[in-house]
Design a binder for these strands. Structure first.
Length: 532
RNA sequence: GGCCCGUUCGUCUAAGGGUUAGGACACCACCCUUUCACGGUGGUGAUACGAGUUCGAAUCUCGUACGGGCUACCA
């Protein structure tokens, strides 16, 4: 309750005072602590980054701390390098935590695998208090149970109050027998004992009051046979121990909320439970967005490229696709949230100022790659060519490196307004680095004749003696010669473009010639002329 | 099947009882441009359905339909 009151006061204070002023005035602001708790099993998904973002924005807005806790309790799903990868992604996106395995903090360790003993203690406490029990059922026992109880009405039988008394556990076995099994080190798990008929509810910051009947909740495993906790136990214990004030996670967790509410009630008291918000899912064309959708519909789903260490399979990332971090964050922020105005482009600082959980949507949002590219386009347009070079030089094809930085920067300033991603960038800039080898002849041939050919022969000669070299001078000389030869300059521009570029695209043709330089421009004309 | 969450243009969304239901992406047309874009102007296009409450409902209530999530010793 205390935390809730403090938070309300902060919200009010924030409405009337500028952030920095409010921060300096209120030492209580450190009470906001949020966390992102990924499991290092593979690439970092769009939805994951959005969860990070909303956590981060909320924390920063309230002068609080953003914690990253690694939920590596499943050894079977462990993926080598995934943990470092996650932090690389956060760094790229500019969403770095205040506390994590790599960022220090008073509440470590921040890796659940390193907290194993802690969970066992709480699990035992629950058993002692009668809220949990030991279960000795083998995988085969469980399979058999599910098979035996499976009906059309109940296609997925659960280990719940209706069947727990038919299984091998410390509820059905004698105390002595249990002790013998335990002492012998028999494989066992600890399950929560869900009360039979209780209504559990909580107030979600986005959805309002949500309630559940425990009659349909099963006796979830809390501690696995290998001694590791499941998510359910670990999240409650760690959120308490790490003093998390607000717990945000994806909507897929909503159904397990009753288990967590019970755990809070039994272990730490409901009054200490963080405020919860369940974010809407990010949907693909068919339900929850998956990396499969990315592969199928050809758009990135992960923040950065991820190579599966077992299969070697590469899944594309937004970074490598040419997305700027600011654009990525911006588009993610707007996927499920807006500030109530028509504004769509926000800096990170603006997002920190304007974000609010209450304005996050409750319905899932279908990811639209076209809109995502539009955001990136907007950011590319407003980024300096020098900065673009810094960002893109490692991503662009190797041919790109055969020129100096000044040249590359000039290329960017010429082409950036027409680029949405790295593909555009490569396409729009490749002819600045490589002489065309094929030409779009269909664009020239219908109106091509000897006079025009002669024009280019003569113009190429004129270019060698030209005084000064810029787009304007080139255009002037071009038009003068055309007039002299009684040819409409407009009819010659497209052929020139095809000679220099190879196709019907790119920046203004004289700007291209300007950047290409005397030698290259003449070479390209002479190169193409025999073909035309 | 059960439980939970959701439903405004194709997509992301605004409108918190009274608006010609607004914006953006995409699409189309025109302008600019003797390339392709950028940019500008305009256009097509939505409150899932049915009851109820109300003078008045996209908005509140209920039902139906549809969509999604969960239903592991995964998170």
């Amino acid at each position: 309750m205390f935390l809730i009151i403090v938070f309300c006061q902060l919200s009010i204070a924030h409405c009337t005072l500028p952030i920095d002023c409010f921060l300096s005035l209120s030492p209580m602001s450190s009470t906001v602590r949020v966390r992102f708790a990924p499991s290092p099993t593979g690439g970092l998904h769009l939805g994951g980054v959005r969860t990070v973002l909303y956590n981060y924005l909320f924390a920063k807005q309230h002068g609080g701390d953003f914690i990253v806790r690694i939920e590596d309790t499943d050894q079977n799903r462990y993926a080598a390098g995934a943990e470092e990868y996650i932090f690389d992604c956060l760094k790229w996106a500019g969403l770095e935590p205040d506390e994590s395995p790599y960022h220090g903090g008073e509440f470590g360790p921040y890796r659940q695998s390193e907290r194993k003993a802690i969970y066992r203690r709480y699990a035992e406490q629950l058993v002692n208090d009668g809220h949990a029990y030991y279960a000795f059922d083998s995988t085969e026992d469980l399979e058999k149970m599910r098979l035996d109880h499976k009906t059309e009405q109940n296609p997925a039988p659960q280990y719940d109050n209706s069947i727990r008394m038919k299984m091998r556990n410390s509820l059905t076995l004698d105390a002595d027998e249990v002790k013998i099994l335990l002492d012998a080190g028999t494989n066992h798990v600890i399950r929560i004992r869900i009360p039979e008929h209780e209504t559990l509810s909580f107030t979600d910051m986005i959805r309002g009051e949500v309630s559940f009947d425990t009659a349909v909740v099963d006796d979830k495993v809390l501690l696995k046979a290998d001694g590791m906790p499941t998510y359910h136990l670990a999240v409650v214990v760690d959120d308490y121990l790490m003093k998390i004030s607000h717990a945000f996670r994806g909507e897929e967790w909503l159904p397990s909320a009753p288990v967590h509410i019970l755990l809070w009630k039994y272990l730490f008291g409901l009054e200490n439970m963080p405020q919860w918000a369940h974010f809407p899912l990010i949907l693909g064309p068919n339900g929850k967005l998956s990396k499969r959708d990315g592969a199928k519909y050809r758009f990135p789903v992960f923040a950065m490229n991820w190579t599966d260490p077992k299969t070697g399979e590469l899944t594309e990332g937004f970074k490598e696709k040419g997305f700027l971090p600011g654009a990525f964050i911006n588009l993610l922020a707007l996927l499920g949230w807006n500030d109530g105005t028509d504004q769509e482009i926000f800096t990170k600082e603006e997002l920190i100022e304007k974000f609010s959980i209450e304005k996050v949507h409750s319905g899932g949002a279908k990811f639209d790659y076209e809109k995502a590219k539009w955001f990136n386009h907007e950011y590319i347009k407003m980024t300096d060519p020098e900065a673009l070079l810094e960002i893109y030089k490692d991503l662009l094809p190797s041919y790109f490196n055969n020129k100096d930085d000044a040249y590359k920067t000039a290329v960017f300033s010429l082409v950036k307004d027409r680029c949405h991603d790295i593909t555009d960038l490569a396409e729009q800039s490749s002819f600045f680095f490589n002489t065309p080898e094929t030409w779009d002849l269909s664009a020239v041939m219908p109106k091509w004749n000897e006079e025009k050919k002669n024009f280019f022969v003569d113009w190429a000669n004129k270019l060698m003696e030209l005084v000064g070299w810029d787009a304007q001078i080139l255009e002037q000389s071009f038009k003068e010669l055309a007039t002299e030869k009684n040819i409409k300059p407009g009819e010659l521009q497209l052929p020139l473009r095809i000679m220099l570029v190879g196709g019907k695209f790119g920046p203004p043709v004289f700007s291209i010639a300007d950047l290409l330089g005397t030698k290259e421009t003449i070479a390209r004309i002479n190169n193409a002329l025999p073909i035309f």
